[in-house]
Write a protein that binds this DNA or RNA. Structure first.
Length: 426
DNA sequence: AACGAACCCAACCGCGAGGCC
DNA sequence: GGGCCTCGCGGTTGGGTTCGT
């Protein structure tokens, strides 16, 4: 029996990489790009398999990798994303700039998981261990509390699915938008480098659509910067490169401010919509989301303590989670997390199966359609007033989608480039 | 100072998805 | 349509380092 080797050829080196090997790999990729990994080792003069080269590059040699200790904010982001996405390290890494999935995975396994376990929180479910659903079935808190926990679990499951799908769609949209922007830029740069059009709809749209939680890869940001430099001059390229290198939270804040300037009053106040983040975080943290959490205001410490009262958590735990709460509520999470229709946006509150003000997953015809609905930005014209914005931003009501066919067309329902202010510069 | 235990993390492995022929 | 190939992902390993006794 035994495992078949990942590389059929004998004599290939395994184990730790030497500085000489690193240098060879770096030099080759800098000069030629990695191309086909399988053929790379021979071309680069390495006695390694392509897989090993790829791993070494992606996890260690890539120039856009940040090494060293994880910040508190990074830790909290990992915890939150893990609660949503589970062990999907690559997806989590998408939201942590300059960190590799392997690094995050290692950090989770060696630090965070243990810390959570030590605090009595199940690292898998992200819930207090003593808070197991239906504990004992008969004894204990009784039916009411059990039912409440069951509802909370349903909330969590539903919310996690919803948010997971949203994150995926957001990342996908951002990638596609960037690709479109690159393609459009390359085309316009090659055709009329000397006389770029004053308005660059492709750029503008792609830029505005860029996910607050997405990150440009090293090659993407470099390519984007170089293309922009050709098309729009060094200043614009520098600004774009700076934004590309920016932390997604910061980039999103900047994007929000820019959009606010362009759209004036027609901009949703993300702070007002903070209930979703607060409520969801609360849900993650104590699993006891109530109607109270739906109010627009951010949960304060007293409310948090009140909500957590039944959990018999230690002071240490509470402080830890409170710190997470504070960071989340003060914008550590991408504020796009609040891109959820308010309850009023739906025809009736009865259509909302849970107290969470978001459409039930079942409202969508399929998970795939959910992905596309998240992408479907309402046309700019739909924003007739700030109030309508507050209720419809980023996500039309599920009823708006009558079939998967209409969903597929709604994918292109991003604001038309012309809708952007003529004064818009990029 | 010496030794074993615990920890850390780079690297490996198998598997599945997607593209190509 | 099916086989092959490449790539990326998540789980796991094992060697080096740090910590505790």
């Amino acid at each position: 029996m035994g495992r078949s080797p990942c590389c059929e050829k004998d004599g290939l080196k395994k184990g730790p990489w030497t500085p000489e090997e690193d240098q060879k790999l770096l030099a080759y990729i800098e000069q030629h790009g990695h191309g086909c990994w399988r053929s790379l080792p021979a071309k680069a003069g390495l006695q390694r398999c392509g897989k090993s080269c790829r791993l070494r590059w992606t996890n260690y040699l890539r120039p856009d990798i940040k090494r060293g200790k994880f910040s508190l904010q990074e830790e909290q982001t990992i915890i939150q994303l893990h609660a949503l996405l589970g062990n999907r390290w690559s997806a989590i890494a998408t939201h942590l700039p300059k960190r590799t999935d392997n690094e995050i995975k290692n950090y989770w396994n060696t630090h965070l998981k243990k810390r959570l376990a030590k605090m009595g929180i199940d690292p898998v479910t992200h819930k207090p261990r003593s808070d197991a659903l239906g504990t004992g079935g008969g004894g204990g808190p009784g039916g009411a509390a059990g039912a409440q926990h069951a509802r909370a679990a349903a909330h969590l499951s539903h919310t996690a699915q919803w948010e997971s799908a949203r994150l995926e769609a957001e990342a996908r949209l951002a990638r596609e938008a960037r690709l479109r922007a690159l393609a459009a830029s390359a085309a316009s740069a090659s055709s009329s480098v000397s006389a770029p059009q004053p308005q660059m709809p492709g750029h503008a749209a792609a830029h505005r659509l860029d996910s607050p939680t997405s990150t440009l890869s090293f090659s993407e940001s470099a390519a984007l910067a170089s293309v922009l430099q050709e098309a729009h001059g060094a200043a614009a390229a520098a600004a774009a490169a700076a934004r590309a290198a920016m932390h997604p939270m910061q980039a999103y804040e900047v994007a929000c401010k820019e959009q606010q300037q362009q759209w004036g009053d027609h901009v949703v106040d993300v702070a007002d919509a903070g209930f979703a983040a607060a409520g969801f975080t609360g849900l993650l943290l104590d699993g006891s989301l109530s109607q109270q959490d739906l109010r627009p205001a951010t949960r304060n410490d007293e409310d948090a303590a009140e909500a957590d009262a039944g959990l018999q958590e230690t002071e240490e735990e509470k402080n830890y989670w409170d710190s997470i709460m504070n960071l989340v509520n003060s914008s550590s999470l991408p504020t796009s997390s609040v891109a959820v229709p308010a309850a009023e946006a739906f025809p009736s509150s009865a259509s909302l199966p849970t107290s969470m003000a978001m459409p039930a997953l079942e409202a969508y015809s399929s998970p795939a359609s959910l992905l596309t609905t998240t992408v479907a930005m309402p046309a700019l014209e739909a924003y007739s007033s700030s109030s309508s914005l507050q209720t419809s931003v980023a996500m039309p009501a599920p009823e708006a989608y009558s079939s998967s066919a209409s969903l597929s067309t709604s994918v292109v329902a991003v604001p038309a480039p012309e809708a952007y202010s003529p004064a818009l510069e990029f």
